[in-house]
Amino acid sequence: MKKILLFTLLGLVAVTPAYAAGDAPVPPHQDWSFNGYNGTFDKGSLQRGYQVYKQVCSACHGMKRISFRNLAALGYSEEEVKALAAEYTVMDGPNDEGEMFERPARPSDAFPSPYPNDETARYANNGALPPDLSLIVKARPHGADYIYGLLTGYEEHHGEEELPAGQYWNKYMAGHKIAMAPPLSDDMVPYEDETVTTTEQYSKDVTSFLAWAAEPELEERKRIGVKVILFLIAFAGVMLAVKRKIWASMH
């Protein structure tokens, strides 16, 4: 028993150092509501985070893997989702006359990206490509901690050499140079509830929202996982008893 676990754990030791993070420091660990074996998303935070994404991030960053219907998971009703979708315009067609046309988005539509293609995006952003944010939390080492660290990690330039135009100094960016200007500042997005409107709070909310976007299955996954493990433990217990009983007669 112990040996099996020991070997399994030993096998995993070799795993952890599989990637180096450049010269950027490890972002501090945040106390996310979705951490842990039974973590869940804070729906209020997700809704505020969506507001921050919509009013700030979406100017440059797409979220093409998310559909408006997915927003129901944030606690919006069907009617609210329809209304949220209708705020966007999407290209559809061709119609009966062969023309492409614009129409308000429906819940079944994916979020429209801000640029028609990567070339336009680079041209508009000094050569840098703002990545699609659907998977960003899973696509970076340290996930949500890193995104939060990045959003709050803008500091005065520390290096010796001059930063090129359009580059900013960020504590947690690999190489410390980032092409994204500090996106958030205090009081830039008015919240409808009493939540404070600080950069830290915006960063926290929008990171939660992005974590949900990357892993919308997280709550269900953990819920089912607990049941699966409990079932397997019970089953293993029964089998251990059976095995002992059978082997006990082996005198």
Partner: peptide
């Protein structure tokens, strides 16, 4: 069967958590 189940517990712990 017992050994397989113990192994599966560790495996699904990774897959789900």
């Amino acid at each position: 069967t017992f050994g397989v189940l113990v192994f599966l517990i560790v495996y699904v712990a990774f897959a789900f958590f």
